[in-house]
Design a protein around this nucleic acid. Structure first.
Lengths: 217, 217, 217, 217
DNA sequence: AATGAATGAGGCTTCATTCAT
DNA sequence: AATGAATGAAGCCTCATTCAT
């Protein structure tokens, strides 16, 4: 039966789509393990159980391949978050679920995502792909914050402030995710809870108009 | 007079100490511009206006050179923060000054520090140097938080919680610094103020025992 | 026919085994001509009519390559001697044939072996390979001497003396081979005869118990 | 007193002749330790306790320096042998003393000579210096053999045979010296005695017209 | 007399990428 | 559809040698 054929790691004559996924799986592993530059096309081909020319035939150059990895993983992450957030829940609940979704995904793809993410940030051609992913996530978060503000009755919050807050939150989350990726024993939910607390309370105060003021200059 | 001879921008036969700084300056620029692996020793030598063998003679291998960059910049950053914090001020004032010092430094060394920092995080041999720098910063921050707690009259805050909070704060700051390094038009002080607000209020609530609780499992 | 296509000296897309031998041939020539350190991988690649990366792909580093040369030539030499010696002949006849085999081989591979041999002696990692080859040759020679002693009726020759004599003989042969390799006009058989005479008579006397004694301290 | 000044390792303002000897001492050590190519002028300068430009000023290029080493050591060796041989002694006694002189010198300069000798043999420009040294030694040995023949009453020995025998003897001696240089625990006199026995008896037979003849073609 | 500063040249090695089968 | 064979280009590093003081 086909099912069993797909289940065992058959390396011959697979349809293109399947082969491509195998290659991407292998590429993600190798890029994560070594970093972009240290990863060699040779190693990726071996890891995929396929010859190098096939990799070039299917996925193109090393840059193309890496971008494909970033995009596939990025899409999965975004979907993971969106699915977790849900539609009709209170803002804090949504934020909480979103954070859990995010950290859960990173926790489950430690070796995959976080390292891959780190790579992409520093290499120019990929930074753009990443930036657009990030922008979409920020948008989602900003939406939640706007909803929260509305719930609290505040209506004059400036959009720019909301976006800035969302940006800070996402940045903090990424920073913690980075750390999470390096600490296999850490619990993603715990990270989510900590950030939730740390952020939510602060954000609420902030959105309620309370501000810390420097006493000097 | 000799003085004038020394004064004109002579590029030949400089004493070792001077050349080393020139090289480090050049290396920081190139590493920032290209990233560790994409940076070539050739380009660094050209940027420093000197031949490659001199770089090897004075600073050693590419790894050695990079580590020297990380250490020099890291030391400067730390000193920058410590100097800003001051000794006998209220905790919030100290935190505020520390953040301003931090973001001010990053803002002034945009191309230098943040990118260099990004590089070091991912390359194993340097990650250690970076981790120790970070640990020292976290310690400074935790000290401020402890002081804050004492001022607020709370005495039962667990040290572990303080460290965790400090860690999160530093992570958030780094994340924002990353963003700052990529946005030349952004104002460091503004970043400092935002994080100060965002964090201080939240931290205060947190330290006062208030916790956000998920309404569902 | 395909056969004719394969027969013409095509220099492209040869199977690995063939290319490896071509490379080894070239490497032996270049190492012989220049010595280990003065030989460049570039020159070897050119001599082999192939690009450098292929050399690395098939034979590894310069050290690996050199060791492969030493081993291939060493094996050939040993086989050459063993084949010449034969099994059931009087000891002197065997020694004679062995020497002819040895010098014949060296004479036929002048540029190859002897210089290569000189190189290997001085470079640490290869000296071991060489020492083991030499040990096997010494063993063969010692076996012949033992047989000779038995034929002469002497039964009390100490094994250690036999080995020492074999060592000296091999050393002398190597020394003459060295000279032979530098003198293209010299006749290998003549060298064999000279050493045979020089040694055999001396060895016989020695093994019969006759000793030269210094008349003074 | 000058004596004491010269005795302690003073590194300043020494007369040129002394400096040159210091440099040669250092160079011999380093060349022996590393081999010609692996020896760096830097290491030699450091070993000599002097700056590199001084080495170039006094002894010229690396090749010049190496040749100076070979010549100094070669001259010393030759003088050592000639002095040992003496003038009016029986031929066998002279040979014995010559061998003792040779192996004694090598034994006392293990690290110096033998390795240096090995180096010189393989590097073209120096091989000539070495060949001329060798020719002089061979001549000395041939002289002894001629004397021996005369003493034995044989007058028809061909000069070419004498030279050939002398060559073989010298070659064997060098071979053993090589081995000696690598075995610090070996006794030079023992080597001399072994070669003396092995050779003298054989040579005597040979010179008396006795020849080993192959029984087959 | 002596040296710290400086460099041109060259060697080993690796890799992304393509060709011919 | 698939791959073994092949290479141009580039990078790190070292060293003999010289210059300017």
């Amino acid at each position: 039966m086909l099912a069993s054929v797909e289940a065992r790691p058959s390396f011959k004559r697979l349809p293109r789509a399947v082969r491509e996924q195998q290659m991407l799986d292998a590429a993600v592993r190798v890029f994560s393990r070594r970093g972009f530059h240290e990863a060699s096309m040779d190693e990726i081909a071996v890891e995929a159980g396929i010859s190098k020319p096939m990799v070039y035939a299917y996925l193109g150059s090393k840059d193309d391949l890496f971008r494909a990895c970033v995009n596939r993983e990025g899409t999965r992450l975004l979907e993971s978050i969106v699915a977790a957030v849900g539609d009709d829940l209170p803002a804090d609940e949504q934020l909480w679920r979103g954070l859990r979704g995010f950290f859960g995904f990173v926790g489950a793809h430690r070796e995959g995502w976080a390292v891959l993410y780190r790579q992409a940030k520093s290499r120019q051609p990929f930074a753009d792909d990443l930036a657009s992913l990030r922008a979409r996530i920020v948008e989602v978060v900003a939406g939640m914050l706007r909803k929260a503000v509305t719930q609290e009755g505040k209506t004059d919050a400036k959009d720019q402030d909301l976006t800035a807050s969302a940006y800070a939150l996402v940045g903090a989350a990424e920073s913690i995710a980075d750390w999470l990726a390096d600490h296999p024993e850490a619990d993603p939910d715990h990270s989510a809870a900590r950030l939730m607390n740390f952020t939510w309370l602060g954000a609420r105060q902030l959105l309620q108009g309370e501000l810390w003021q420097p006493s000097s200059a």
